Structure formats: C-alpha cells, structure tokens
Amino acid sequence: MSNERKGAIDQPAVYPSLKDRVVFITGGGSGIGESLVEHFCAQGAKVAFVDIAAAPSKALVERIAAKGDPKPLFMPCDLRDIEALRSCVAQAAKELGPIRALLNNAGNDDRHATADVTVDYWNDRMAVNVRHQFFAAQAVRPMMRDAGGGSIVMFGSITWLVGDGDCPAYVTSKAAITGMTRALAREFGPERIRVNCLLPGWVMTERQVKLWLNEAGEKQIAERQCLPDRLFAPDIARMALFLAADDSRMCSSQNFIVDGGWV
C-alpha cells in the first residue's frame, strides 16, 4: 500500500449532502489531491479535477472507476495559466453541472534559501501556490451564488504559523492564503458561499517521504507533534469532506488545522 493510502479508517463518515454534488479539485493527481479525489468520489460526488501531470491523473481515474465509484473528470492544466484554469472550470460545469464545492489544493513546497530567490522564481512561487486559488474562487462564485450557495476550501499550511526557514517564498504564499480566505468569506458570505482554509501539517505523501523524511525528520515529528501517529493524506481529505458538506454550513472565514498537534 502506498503512503498516500495510509491513514484510512474502518468506518469513515458518510455525508449525504455530498452525493451528486459537483466538486472541483486542483492538483488532484497525486498526494493530498489524489486522496481528495478518491474520498469525494467515494461519497458519490461528481468530481472534476485538474493537474499538470497527466499520466498519474489518468491512472487515478481508471482506478476509481474500477472500484465502482463515480468516474471523475480529469482535465490537464498548468494552473499558472489562468485562462486555462477558467476554461477547465467552465468545462466541468458544462459536463457535470454547477460547481458547489471548490478544493484549492494545488501547490508546491520546494525548498529554497533567501539568497537564491530571483524575481522570476518569487513570481513563479506566487503563481503556483496562491494566485490560482483566487481566480478559481472568482470563477466558481457566480454558479455557487445562483445555486444558492457553496463551499470553497483554500489550502494553506502550518509552515507560516511555525515560521519554517527553508522555503520563505512558499511560507509567504501560504500566509497570504489565510488573508485571502478571510477577505473572500466576508465578501461571498451574503451569497451563502462559505470560504475556509485547511492547514495541513507534515503529511506523509510519497513525495514528502522520498525527499525529506530522514532520521532528523522523524526526530522532529516525535518532538513536535502531540500525537504519536503519522499524518497521511486521508486525514486531510476527511476534514475537507466535512468542510464541503452541509454539516459545516455555519463554518466560514476559519482556519482548520490538521497537524497531529504540531502547532
């Protein structure tokens, strides 16, 4: 079993309001995004997702269909191209119906030092991590409003809360997402559109384990987390299900931290 699938529980919650709900997920081809796609499809939602990596995304679609869950709609997209993102949102709505839940998951936490950051790299990190979240929310807002409401889940990170020092552009972008969440929640609220921010801790995706989980990392987890267990993508996905479902209908403008008690 791959690391992304660990963290499953025997009897996960079922949210009736998510059945047939149209859900749009960014960065759905691997890691946390892959688990989001799997969990929402398992709830009977109509899922559309975008990712820059076509091969793993297509494999995910076939794996979900083989399980008998509703087959998700995959659209390749580089989220730095805002017009392409807008086109994918429009295509998803045309094929599946009005989008009622948006999961702004996509991002990249490559490590970097301040001295090495150029203007181009800085702008690229903002484009990869924060800019598309705003424009995806902008794109789905009219259909959510016309449908009577919806849920937008922005994806932040605990890195800005703890002040990680090995990726300053990433930390800055993730801090900005919390500010954006509060601004959009205030503006969209009268239309019954909820906007919340989900802040994962150190999630044991395949990428994280391969690149950064060494002896020092294991020691850090043991020292910083309150809980002894490792955090996996399904732990994040289950919080996202709650935030997208009607069960969280009065939750908006909030940070929801899932980090094993790190912060």
Rank of each mutant, 00 (worst) to 15 (best):
P72Y: 09
Q43M: 00
A240D: 04
E218Q: 14
I257Q: 02
A169Y: 02
I25L: 01
K94P: 10
L184V: 02
F188L: 12
D259S: 10
L231M: 04
M154C: 07
F49D: 03
D229R: 14
I158P: 04
A84S: 14
R194H: 01
G150A: 03
E191K: 04
I82L: 09
M239C: 09
G179F: 00
T114P: 05
A54V: 14
V203W: 06
S253D: 14
C88F: 03
L213M: 10
C41P: 00
R182L: 06
L103Y: 11
S248Y: 09
A53S: 10
D116L: 14
V130P: 10
G148R: 11
R182M: 10
A45W: 15
E38A: 05
D116T: 14
A115L: 00
Y170F: 12
L184A: 05
A127L: 13
R141D: 07
M204V: 01
L161M: 12
A237K: 00
F135C: 08
D20W: 08
M144W: 13
M154F: 09
V61H: 06
K210W: 01
A233K: 04
L36Y: 12
A55G: 02
Q43H: 06
Q11W: 10
A45K: 15
L103T: 05
A93Q: 12
V153D: 09
M75Y: 14
G29C: 01
A59E: 14
N3A: 13
L231W: 02
K71I: 01
E83L: 11
G260Q: 15
C88K: 07
C167M: 13
D20S: 13
Y15R: 03
V61N: 03
A59R: 15
M239I: 05
A137D: 04
Q11F: 11
R63I: 03
G261F: 01
L103W: 03
Q225M: 01
P70W: 12
R249H: 07
D78W: 08
P98A: 11
M1T: 10
W212H: 12
Q133P: 03
A84M: 07
G261P: 06
N123Y: 04
S248D: 06
P200E: 08
C197M: 04
P190Q: 10
G201C: 03
L161C: 08
R145V: 07
K67G: 02
L231P: 05
M204T: 00
H39D: 05
K6H: 09
R192Y: 13
S157R: 08
N196I: 05
S173K: 00
I221V: 09
T118P: 02
K67V: 00
M250S: 05
D81A: 01
G31E: 08
S30K: 12
A222M: 09
A54Y: 09
R186L: 00
M1C: 07
W202P: 08
S87M: 11
N214K: 04
D247S: 11
V263P: 12
M143W: 05
S30V: 00
G31Q: 10
D120H: 03
V195L: 01
